[in-house]
Design a protein around this nucleic acid. Structure first.
Lengths: 107, 107
DNA sequence: TATAAGGTTCGATAAAATTCGAACGTACTA
DNA sequence: TAGTACGTTCGAATTTTATCGAACCTTATA
């Protein structure tokens, strides 16, 4: 069996390229892209309810997508006990992937 | 059954966001990302054999990935009869997705 | 012309991602 | 304390992608 790590080493991909790939995979889904674009177009530092993006899916699905976005570092999760908020990791992203936010801002 | 078009309209995604999604999907695969990053890091206007990227897959698979990259407009295909060359659509991409190339250049 | 080399398409199989209901945990609140 | 609201996790089903061999087409060349 061939896993992705093997493919990556086969192809001599840089660490940066692997990190970039994770980000691209996370963005390559209509709901997740919309969430990130919406957060980008919000004012800086904005925190949003997970339910405020107009996603018409089961809550298990929503939870899945937000976890994925959090795992790759696109958002951070603010736990407020009863509910939770999502926040774009703006500075960190600008630092690690300069230009990414500007690229998505127009979309 | 729910297809992607329905999801996109459900979510009120802009045309630009749909176009961006196609690009992100195309880049969200290790081989395809490597191809594009390699082309970006080549000199401007460079044309490369499809076999010159060190991809260890069957030719049917290679053909599949290059077709996908061509279909979303990331590369153009120069047919030389016996063989074919791939070329980054640099200016067009810079025009439609400003900052994309610079974002991937570091990777 | 025959042969080889490179690329595409087709059909089938394998792998990965998406989706959801159900069960569960945690924190508000009546 | 009991009930409710919100989120996560688990397991299973569905859908999408990736992969490859085989057949085929086109062009160069022996």
């Amino acid at each position: 069996m061939v896993n992705e790590t093997d493919i990556n080493t086969d192809m001599n991909q840089s660490t940066k390229q692997v990190a970039m790939l994770a980000i691209l995979k996370a963005l390559a889904h209509p709901m997740r892209l919309k969430i990130i674009v919406d957060l980008i177009n919000d004012e800086e530092g904005a925190e949003r309810h997970c339910t405020s993006f107009g996603l018409t899916v089961a809550k298990a699905t929503r939870s899945h997508h937000f976890k994925l976005l959090k795992d790759v570092g696109l958002i951070s999760h603010i736990d407020k006990g009863n509910h939770s908020l999502a926040k774009l990791r703006r500075e960190e992203l600008e630092e690690e992937f300069p230009g990414l936010i500007r690229l998505l801002k127009n979309a």
